[in-house]
Design a protein around this nucleic acid. Structure first.
Lengths: 338, 338
DNA sequence: GCTAGAATGATGAACGTCAATCTTTTTCAG
DNA sequence: CTGAAAAAGATTGACGTTCATCATTCTAGC
């Protein structure tokens, strides 16, 4: 048995193709009675629109934009590399990806990126941005224009975004704390948390999760106030070595980027603090192998990009999207499993 | 600018549509010179076949089969549940999934499943099977008939499979060992490994990885020979409690399924051995929360099913598939990050 | 230079849907 | 009962490709 087509629906409803089409694409001008007949016929026949044929007919393309910081290294670079690959891979599927780079931690630049988009040039957009009221406004504007908005890596739960694609950052922080505690094996000492910025929701969520578990389960470890490294290797390096001048550290949790600086700042420190960082990059991988880092918590950029695209597509085709779809698992790496 | 079509290629090659079509679908009967002209025109115009249109025209459907053990609980049940979801979700894309259940750890039944498939009823198949020469033969037969074969969860690297979709099981074992060692914090003692079957390659690879890291880094921990629990809760329970009668355990690494039995066999043991199991299910999740289990190494069944389908589809459309595509990351769960 | 056979061209119907246009039928107010 | 508006029907040409058929033009061998 073949899949039913509009013809079958028309037959079942005892109406013409034209009327069925009018109903299916709600073009209006159809009697209420006929609408019901069609709805019934669709249910009876089990008709599902052939999206490929429909797209072919209406020359549809999917235009998705990704807004992310223009950082040349680390995790964001991996994200961008994956996007570039998908850009090519998805061309035959008529999915066009536009990548818009913003200045890191710069709300005006993120705003400008959002403003450059509109409902008739874009079908969906995935944004990696910080929490700010103007950003929320722009997202609302886009949503209103029928653009599907995803938040990427860092969520904006109170905005009008359709979905969040990224890890559970509170869980990430909790995990970091749990391993920090276990790896410290009951000793006491001081822990430093280095974030990128205190305005990044993802970083704050990680800090929150980290603090919770630390307070609950490892009261022997003392937390310094969260520092800001602005994802810059040099700033992070200075931060670490300055701190070490006055305070010996039992552990470091690097919430954001700048791991190259972290390693430099840590060089020649003995005993080496338990070091937990985020994102598996060339640098963190090497440091894991050499023993300079104890644990890496990673969100797979490949999975992230794919999930985002797949969800934007489903939203565009208005299939229902379960929220769980965007959850990116946290991958935990130690020396033995990279 | 629109994407080029066969018409554009024909124009560029100064040949008719018919000839271009003959070349593109190599139907033969075309002069070598013309073939070259077409190839050149394709390159010049950047033509890429519109797969959706092509599929529409040739009424193509993708028929994929999944062969997996008919176990009603645990990881395999999660796999099957996800497959059932995808079955519905992918219907509008004309992807049909057939799920074939085999008796667990039963080669004849796996063979029968493979034998039931052929090139003209199936485009791709993902098999979760054990290593056996007859299985290799069947895979070769299917490959020869143009069926794309994937191995799922457990690889058969010397077979003619097109790709493996699943985790790096050696890395899984290494990871388990690394955490086992760290969680034991320098103490010495005896470790029990419980596999499903010594014939399952995935289990053996895990054991191998586990042994390697144990020997290298934690010589203070002694390994008992790997036991077989046949993924049965009752067998595992008995195994554990029998072992405990004669030998106190510092750690247990459950390589396979049957975690319900493991927990029962472990009840009232004090001190509780460090316990590491595979796959996040209702049971292991609860045990993690209650503290009966220390660590769960999980392969996400959702990711696994999606990767398998996406790869089978790419193979069917003969796009090139990088081997890395099938690698499923290992998710490590402790109490704090589930 | 003729002819068989190969190569190429031309054409049209299909796949399932969309979208537009034009015609016919139904409905209902006055 | 009439007539206009609303609803429904009918038809057609796209979208990009496949596939088959038939007609035409080359190309070699003799």
């Amino acid at each position: 048995m073949q899949r039913p087509t509009i013809h079958d629906v028309a037959d079942a409803a005892r109406l013409s193709l034209a009327t069925v089409d009018r109903v299916l694409n709600n073009r209006g001008g159809v009697a209420e009675k006929s609408v019901r007949k069609v709805t019934k016929a669709v249910a009876e026949t089990g008709y599902v629109r052939d999206i490929a044929a429909a797209n072919l007919s209406r020359k549809r393309r999917y235009r998705f934009a990704f807004i992310l910081p223009g950082i040349a290294t680390g995790f964001v670079a991996l994200l961008r590399a994956e996007l570039a690959k998908e850009q090519i891979r998805l061309r035959p599927d008529k999915i066009e990806l536009e990548i818009i780079e913003t200045a890191p931690f710069d709300t005006p630049s993120q705003l400008a990126a959002l403003r450059s988009l509109s409902g008739d040039t874009t079908n969906g957009v995935a944004v990696f941005a910080a929490e700010a009221p103007e950003i929320h406004d722009e997202i609302a504007r886009l949503a209103h224009q029928g653009v599907h908005v995803l938040t990427l890596v860092s969520d904006l739960p109170r905005s009008q975004r359709d979905a969040y694609v990224g890890p559970d950052n509170v869980a990430a922080g909790r995990t970091a704390a749990a391993f920090m505690g276990r790896f410290s094996a009951g000793r006491s000492g001081t822990i430093l948390m280095v974030t990128g910025s205190l305005a990044s929701r993802d970083h704050m969520e990680r800090v929150m999760g980290f603090r919770m578990v630390m307070a609950e389960r490892f009261p022997n470890l003392t937390l310094l106030p969260a520092a800001q490294g602005f994802d810059s290797a040099e700033t992070v390096r200075k931060l670490i070595s300055d701190t070490l001048k006055t305070t010996p550290l039992a552990g470091i949790y690097a919430v954001g980027a700048g791991n190259r600086g972290l390693l430099e700042g840590l060089r020649d420190t003995s005993p080496r603090p338990v070091t937990i960082v985020h994102e598996l990059t060339d640098i963190s991988r090497a440091a894991l192998l050499s023993g300079e880092i104890d644990l890496v918590i990673d969100q797979n950029p490949v999975a992230e990009v794919r999930a985002a695209i797949s969800i934007m597509r489903d939203l565009s085709d208005n299939r229902d999207v379960t929220t769980a779809r965007g959850a990116i698992p946290l991958n935990i790496f130690i020396r033995e499993n990279i």
